[in-house]
Design a protein around this nucleic acid. Structure first.
Lengths: 145, 145
DNA sequence: GCGTAATAGTTGTTTTTGTAACTAACAAGC
DNA sequence: GCTTGTTAGTTACAAAAACAACTATTACGC
């Protein structure tokens, strides 16, 4: 295998994908095995856990998840009684979503796992480097300068 | 929207995914619109372009792509006459893959695009920071210390 | 008010992916 | 050489994602 011309390992989109995939694994194992959740499901759960009552649209905009994914994630979470949906009286198109006690328990549980995963990943670097990494990633993700 | 308890924006797997998705877009537009390719397809193309003759297994191991994805990517690339497959005489399970002239032309084209995309992304940071970012990503991806 | 456009969310259909089972070829033990 | 195990790659089926079309409701122009 000769090596030539272009270094894939230096191509940022590729690097990001490889790193993202690898780093997702540890957390994925937990939300998958404990709750049978999908990525979009834990994300919705976390948004409601963190921000409280939100509509599907708000979650979609914040998390950049497509509305069909949200719709199906909400459906599943509602079936499992992790959240309740209530129509807005003023604008009856809107549906407010809120975690139930069971939903909050799942969130609390997974939040702790997420903290551990993050800590384990970050521990590979100097605190300063890790902070820089996150800052740069946030910027690449399109948030903040 | 109150903010509380856990900062999703600081959760590395989440950040990585958001950044990866965002950064993939610019390149994706090109390989999708010009060649109708999928992610696994351009990756196989690039591996053959960079390393020359390889087997499906070698590509899979290097790029961490599952063998079924590779199998399908190779099939599509072969249909479009971007690569040719030849059986190994010594071990007839193995199939050597190699780009055709058309395949190399596509690779050359996309390689230039990739360079531009990478340059545009990297330009947001100090060269030193960018180098540090790539080093850390490579490590998170599981390559190198 | 009425017709048109926009928004929130859902549903249906098609692609793409993931998992597991499969074929074919080689390798090793005996 | 014949079973058993392993490896390369494909195929079949199930799960998930992407995309487009849809319903219901609100907003706007006039």
């Amino acid at each position: 295998m000769k090596k030539d011309e272009f270094d894939l390992q230096e191509f940022l989109p590729y690097l990001l994908n490889q790193a993202a995939e690898e780093c997702s694994l540890s957390f994925q194992r937990h939300y998958k095995s404990r709750y049978g959740m999908l990525r979009s499901e834990w994300r919705v759960l976390f948004h409601l856990g963190i921000y409280g009552r939100m509509t599907a649209g708000e979650i979609g905009k914040t998390a950049k998840i497509h509305k069909t994914k949200i719709s199906r994630a909400v459906q599943k979470l509602a079936e499992r009684r992790f959240l309740i949906r209530t129509r807005d009286d003023a604008d009856r198109r809107l549906e407010h979503l809120e975690l139930t006690a069971a939903g909050r328990a799942a969130y609390d549980d997974l939040r702790a796992v997420a903290r551990d995963c993050d800590a384990a990943l970050v521990a590979q670097f100097d605190p300063q480097d890790a902070a820089g990494l996150k800052r740069m990633l946030a910027r690449l993700a399109g948030r903040g300068a």
